[in-house]
């Protein structure tokens, strides 16, 4: 949907629309992003800290007097209804679950912000990087995504798609869990994957992450190549997910 004139005061209240908008917006066009992104690390968060932060609460959003609010489909529905009642224009983005969703979201953001040319350029760069990843040949090695609480993402999720794009077969998909699910340690041990992609190892600060230090996972780390996938690597569908795809594809190349 194209607006007559580009919006001048855009407020993003979702971590992922924050990043899409930051990459495309004209100087001064984006007036606030979420505090969640500001607390993050990296270049995007650095840029986010230059702007006022918000916590996605209706009251503070309204007081920013935006002419466009960018939200995610998991933004609290009561907040969205309240903003609608207050007469604000809201655009809701569905989180990317595939690499082509990322392209679509970038193009849509470009249209909404009146920055079509910038969006086209970003998508072209994205396509070029994706095309440069060597096509997988031969049988795909098995990769196990393993996160807190033994959760393993499936092929209908962005991390699953990223692993598959790098030329791996996915453990959760083989187990018939398209959206992922809890994979017991026993199953992980007997599946003998060729690559273990674990969430942040570090000292477990929560009981949920203890499982990543379990002797079974530790033994698997000793036996097969291991990669680390931080939550921030896949939570949002931005071109930076290709960093991970390229890294995993390089591991795939060494397995030939």
């Amino acid at each position: 949907m194209a607006l007559a004139a580009p919006p001048e005061r855009v407020v993003s209240i979702n971590l992922c629309t924050d990043q899409l908008a930051l990459a495309l917006a004209a100087p001064g066009q984006l007036v606030s992003v979420t505090r969640m992104l500001q607390r993050d690390e990296g270049a995007m968060a650095e840029a986010a800290r230059a702007l006022p932060g918000n916590s996605a609460r209706a009251e503070e959003i309204y007081l920013l007097a935006p002419d466009l609010v960018l939200a995610g489909s998991f933004t609290a529905p009561d907040t969205l209804r309240m903003l609608q009642r207050l007469g604000l224009t809201i655009e809701v983005f569905t989180p990317a679950e595939t690499l082509s969703d990322i392209r679509a979201n970038i193009l849509r953001m470009g249209t909404l912000l009146g920055r079509e040319a910038e969006a086209q350029a970003e998508v072209a760069a994205f396509d070029a990087r994706l095309a440069a990843i060597p096509a997988p040949a031969g049988p795909a090695p098995l990769a196990a995504l393993y996160a807190a609480n033994g959760y393993s993402a499936g092929d209908a999720t962005l991390p699953g798609q990223m692993v598959k794009a790098a030329g791996f077969a996915l453990l959760a998909e083989e187990m018939g869990l398209p959206y992922g699910g809890v994979v017991p340690l026993e199953t992980l041990a007997t599946a003998s994957p060729d690559l273990l992609i674990a969430a942040r190892p570090g000292a477990p600060k929560s009981r949920a992450e203890e499982i990543l230090a379990h002797p079974v996972v530790a033994a698997l780390r000793d036996q097969v190549p291991t990669d680390t996938l931080h939550d921030s690597d896949w939570t949002c569908g931005t071109p930076s997910v290709l960093d991970t795809v390229e890294r995993l594809a390089a591991i795939r190349e060494t397995m030939k």
């Binding site: 340690l185 026993e186 041990a189 007997t190 379990h214 002797p215 079974v216």
Partner: peptide, 11 residues
Amino acid sequence: GPATMVMREIR
């Protein structure tokens, strides 16, 4: 094998 791992470290 994984059997020893499963029995001793999990079950």
